[in-house]
Design a protein around this nucleic acid. Structure first.
Length: 602
DNA sequence: GTCCGTCTTG
């Protein structure tokens, strides 16, 4: 091998693909091609990694002309290259069944990469039929396809166990995530425990399990596993871990854990540049915003050096859910100015911000310009959001007309938005119409029954309430239990309505009663004995007992706050002179000095 | 030569 050959190979191995290609081109002028032949596979890899179509073709035809294509390594690299360039059919034309397993692997991976799961599986069957034995690489390339073909992980896993390949951690990890992705979380956990036990697991094993839980909405398990992880000294969390943990903190509203992660990320600055990681930054923004700390979310946003559309979306929806539509809209504008095009999710975040802030005209303008100005065609979700926006503003007829004009079939969320608007504006007849659609599309969704029932209650049509109750009974549906919780010293204190289980129960009820008495003096309603004590009141009572004077109290709630409690908390915020923040199912309410940031509009 | 196992936004 010449010095030049070695130089080219080493450049490519250091991922300096462009340098490798340039070096090759220059060398061709002085050195005979035959000396450079050993560099062909890595050159092909370099050109395809850089998505240089023409260069890849040229290398291909050079291989043909010089008869190098008969070299298996060259052929393998070309199969892989065409797959990467999204020409799986060209790749498969180069393939022959007599080739060695690596070529099968390249093709299997090529089809997987191009979402051609059937073809990927066929090549694997061909491999078995030709009595070739597969490798770990084969499995890693094949499993994603099997998953999308809805194969069960277990039988495949059983076969692989016999092959001995499952001792390879990456194969174990692949199966672990296959179990998790197909919803078999406990199987995934079993495999995880075995791997950790056999000392066969690594950082990726932990990450796969953490994100497996996250994908299955098991946020509490994510936090538990993370706590286990940081106690160990054989594994250190990285950016992927933090992203998974942070998204769970966000959905739970686990502020303390989230802040601990934030500190850890900041502290890690010297070891590895975690704070410069865009994924981590995005996750942090989302976590802080959804835990109620918009200020810190903004600080993270401001500190970021690279901002993707996801970054902007996270901060825009942050302001949106806290009711600051102006800020959301101006950030959206800033995003456009910075040259980033919105995608469907970004549009949704700004539309929803407008909706929550009552910025009807602005929202309508964004919506009508979606296709032309922003290049995003409205999906059913955007329509649902617009129905919400029009409906909240009291334009119920306009909302209905929008639904009737939709180019696609309205789904449950669309009719549900209309139903929600009918609740705000107490429109029984249109509410019934919306309900009749939604009950057909999502007969199991309890929330909609409750909404209509509440409309009946609000206007005093008690026979309607009874009718809904009968319907629910017939279908065996039960109201979701409302619960509220508050985090204190890394522990979640959760309350149901009339909850009697908390150790501080006596003090909590006493506090709530005292607040109710003070509210009544000011002419406020307290819901009272008939309805019992809603969970948010208990959480606020606990918050008052457990936090320092003057600190704000942050409560998370699974359902929407009811009217009575909303009025109650407004007055409480005035009485105690503290800010009370409630995150309910749809947004944040900041109660201060007798007012709520939602302007009674939620 | 083949490789992919983990990652954020509504």
């Amino acid at each position: 091998m010449t010095e030049t050959t070695i130089a080219i190979l080493s450049l490519a191995r250091q991922f300096r693909y462009l340098d490798a290609l340039r070096q090759f081109k220059i060398s061709l002028l002085t050195i005979h091609f035959s000396h450079l032949l050993p560099t062909l596979p890595l050159l092909v890899k370099s050109s395809s990694a850089l998505f240089l179509h023409r260069t890849t073709y040229q290398l291909h035809s050079l291989s043909v002309k010089t008869n190098s294509i008969s070299h298996i390594h060259v052929l393998t690299s070309l199969i892989s290259a065409y797959s990467r360039l999204r020409y799986p059919n060209l790749a498969s034309r180069l393939f022959l069944p007599i080739l060695p397993v690596v070529c099968y692997n390249a093709l299997i991976s090529g089809f997987t990469l191009n979402s051609m799961s059937d073809q990927s599986f066929s090549v694997f069957r061909l491999l078995l039929r030709n009595s070739l034995s597969f490798s770990a690489t084969t499995l890693l390339s094949l499993l994603p396809s099997l998953l999308s073909l809805q194969f069960h992980a277990r039988p495949v896993h059983a076969i692989v166990l016999k092959s001995g390949l499952s001792n390879d951690p990456s194969v174990g990890n692949a199966f672990l995530s296959m179990y998790a992705r197909s919803g078999e979380v406990s199987e995934a956990r079993k495999l995880f425990d075995e791997m950790v036990e056999r000392n066969n697991g690594d950082l990726i094993t932990w990450n796969a399990m953490i994100s497996g839980y996250a994908q299955n909405s098991m946020a509490d398990q994510v936090i538990r596993l993370y706590r286990m992880m940081i106690k160990r000294d054989d594994v250190l969390p990285d950016s992927v871990t933090f992203v998974g943990v942070l998204s769970s903190c966000a959905s739970l509203g686990a502020t303390d854990v989230g802040r601990e992660v934030d500190r850890r990320i900041k502290a890690s600055e010297n070891r590895s540049p975690l704070s410069g990681n865009t994924f981590v930054g995005n996750a942090l923004i989302n976590m802080h915003a959804r835990c109620g700390d918009l200020k810190r979310a903004r600080e993270v946003f401001d500190s970021m050096t690279e901002r993707t559309v996801v970054t902007w979306t996270a901060v825009i929806s942050g302001y949106g859910m806290h009711g600051d539509g102006e800020a959301a809209a101006s950030l959206f504008q800033a995003m456009l100015n910075s040259g980033i095009r919105p995608d469907g999710v970004a549009m949704l975040s700004v539309l929803s911000a407008c909706s929550h802030a009552g910025m009807t005209d602005v929202g309508m303008r964004y919506f009508s310009g979606m296709t032309e100005t922003f290049g995003v065609s409205p999906s059913v979700e955007h329509y649902a959001c617009m129905v919400d926006l029009l409906g909240r503003a009291g334009l119920l007829k306009g909302a209905l007309e929008l639904i009737q004009s939709m180019p696609m079939k309205p789904d449950g969320a669309v009719w549900g938005s209309l139903l929600g608007a009918c609740k705000i504006h107490r429109d029984v007849r249109m509410g019934e119409a919306a309900f009749s659609h939604v009950v057909e599309l999502e007969p199991e969704n309890v929330g909609y029954y409750v909404l209509l029932s509440n409309i009946y209650t609000d206007v005093g049509e008690m026979e309607g309430v009874a009718k809904i109750r009968r319907m629910m009974k017939e279908k065996g549906l039960k109201k979701d239990a409302g619960c509220s919780y508050i985090e204190h010293k890394q522990k979640i204190h959760l309350f149901l309505a009339d909850d009697q289980r908390h150790p501080l129960k006596k003090d909590i009820y006493q506090t709530v009663r005292r607040l109710e008495a003070m509210v009544e003096v000011r002419g406020g309603g307290v819901g009272g004995e008939v309805r019992g004590v809603h969970s948010e009141k208990l959480a606020i009572g606990f918050g008052l007992l457990s936090t320092e004077v003057g600190m704000r109290i942050v409560v998370m709630k699974n359902l929407r706050v009811c009217n009575d409690c909303h009025e109650f908390i407004k007055l409480v915020s005035e009485i105690i002179g503290r800010e009370v923040v409630v995150r309910d199912a749809s947004r944040f309410h900041h109660f201060r000095d007798g007012f709520c940031s939602c302007k009674d509009f939620w």
